[in-house]
Structure formats: structure tokens, C-alpha cells
């Protein structure tokens, strides 16, 4: 990192994209509560206090260009204890959103794009999805006590809309059965949407507000369409 010189002149402030947001970083007294609480502090130079300090010092550009915002797990432990109530998590998310999309690390942005296109982060076609789910459902029906189990797709007027974590559909679909067993024994009136079933909003993680809004909107749409009052969200 460079020398900090005359950082907060108004000129730079205008350029500094993080300043205009409702950040409380000025309130920071560098007490270290956030750093002490963060499970990642010290790992690859991560330290939430540093992030706040960079914003306070007007070093937004450096922050956005660094990988620091991406190390955060967004667990919110820092913000929970901050005596000044600084919105650390939202600052970090905003910073992520300001990163050029091609620079978003890993598969998150790809996932967002797939989701926008297909309705789920792994780009699973609807037929494949139904096949997998029904397959698992049949497996469950084979177990004693669940012989009458059936997957309720797109059931109008159900009590609970069940969105799914793509991981459960993709690799760990055994785990789905745990949920369903509970639903079945509890006689829950539930349903799975055949379209836009993704329950993980990677727009949240990549700081992509538009995508996030879109994903949330799809769920709302499903609920309205099927006239469902309650949502189960796996994240």
C-alpha cells in the first residue's frame, strides 16, 4: 500500500465511490473490536478494521481493487459488536459491487449470469431438475412409512414454498430427503417450483444489486402465482 497523503480533499472524495453511500466509517475510533471478532482476521492480510480505515482515509480505489472485500464471509460478527454501529458488512458488499464484473473472483459472477439466464446458479434445465427431484422422491417413497410420498411441484395454494440450494440438487441430494421426511410426518402442505427454484442469491455475495433484485423478484413471482404465504429459503 502506498503512502497516504492528503486523502480527503473534496476532489478525491468525489472520485471516491464509497464516500457517497451511507457509510458510518468516520465514526470509527479504530478500537479493534471488529478485528478481534472477525474469524478471518490475519488471514491473507484481512482485517475489517483495515477496510473501514481505508474507506475513512478515502482509499476506496485501493480497497476495490484489492482482494480484501472478497475474503469476507459476510458473517456480520464485526458489525454485531461494533460500539459505533458501523455498517461494516454493507460497506464491504458495496465495495464488491463496484468491482468490474470480470474481476469478481471465482464462480460467483458466473453463477449469477447462469441464474439470470436459467433460473438457477448451475444452469440446470427444467427437465433435468424435475428428473432429479422426482428420482430422489421415489427413493424416499421406497423407505418404510413414506410409501405415499410424492413431490408436489407447483402446487397452487400450498402453505410453504420450498426453494432449494443448488448444491443439494447438484451433488448432495440425499440431504433433501431430511427436509421432506419432516414435511411428510408433519403433514406440511408444501410445494417446489419447477422453474426459478434457486434458493441461493449470489447477487448478494457479488454485490450485484440488480441481479439480487431479479432473483428475489422471481421467488415473489412464484409465490404470487401459486398463492403461497410462506417461504422456505435454504440460505
Amino acid at each position: 500500500m502506498d503512502t497516504i497523503t492528503s486523502i480527503k480533499s473534496s476532489e478525491i472524495k468525489q472520485k471516491a465511490p464509497l464516500r457517497p453511500i451511507e457509510s458510518l466509517t468516520d465514526m470509527c475510533m479504530a478500537c479493534g473490536t471488529c478485528s478481534a471478532g472477525c474469524p478471518l482476521t490475519g488471514i491473507e492480510g484481512f482485517d475489517p478494521r483495515k477496510i473501514v480505515r481505508m474507506v475513512l482515509m478515502g482509499m476506496d480505489k485501493e480497497l476495490i481493487e484489492s482482494k480484501l472485500p472478497w475474503l469476507c464471509t459476510m458473517c456480520g460478527k464485526c458489525e454485531y459488536a461494533c460500539p459505533m454501529g458501523i455498517n461494516i458488512v454493507s460497506i464491504i458488499r458495496t465495495a464488491r459491487g463496484m468491482v468490474k464484473r470480470e474481476n469478481v473472483p471465482g464462480m460467483i459472477h458466473k453463477g449469477v449470469e447462469l441464474c439470470l439466464k436459467t433460473g438457477n446458479n448451475i444452469g440446470l434445465p427444467k427437465e433435468d431438475f424435475i428428473f432429479i427431484i422426482e428420482d430422489v422422491g421415489e427413493e424416499l417413497a421406497g423407505e418404510s412409512g413414506f410409501s405415499d410420498f410424492k413431490i408436489p411441484f407447483d402446487k397452487n395454494g400450498a402453505n410453504l414454498l420450498h426453494t432449494l440450494h443448488n448444491k443439494l440438487v447438484n451433488t448432495q441430494n440425499e440431504d433433501l430427503k431430511h427436509w421432506w421426511k419432516i414435511f411428510h410426518i408433519a403433514k406440511e402442505d408444501w410445494t417446489i417450483p419447477s422453474q426459478n427454484w434457486e434458493g441461493v442469491n449470489w447477487g448478494l455475495f457479488s454485490g450485484d444489486d440488480e441481479a439480487m433484485k431479479c432473483f428475489v423478484g422471481r421467488i415473489v413471482e412464484n409465490m404470487e402465482k401459486l398463492e403461497i404465504a410462506n417461504l422456505m429459503y435454504p440460505e
Binding site: G32, C34, S35, A36, T41, R49
Partner: peptide, 22 residues
Amino acid sequence: VRCRVHSIEPGENPDDLRLKYV
């Protein structure tokens, strides 16, 4: 040590207390 501590966790041995700080 100039650091406000976030939380107190149980330590290695029973009854010990762990602090993490920078």
C-alpha cells in the same frame, strides 16, 4: 494492549477464557 476485545470464548482448558485481538 490497544485493542477493544470483541468477545470472550472458552479457552483450551476448562474454565480458561480465550481472547483474540490484533
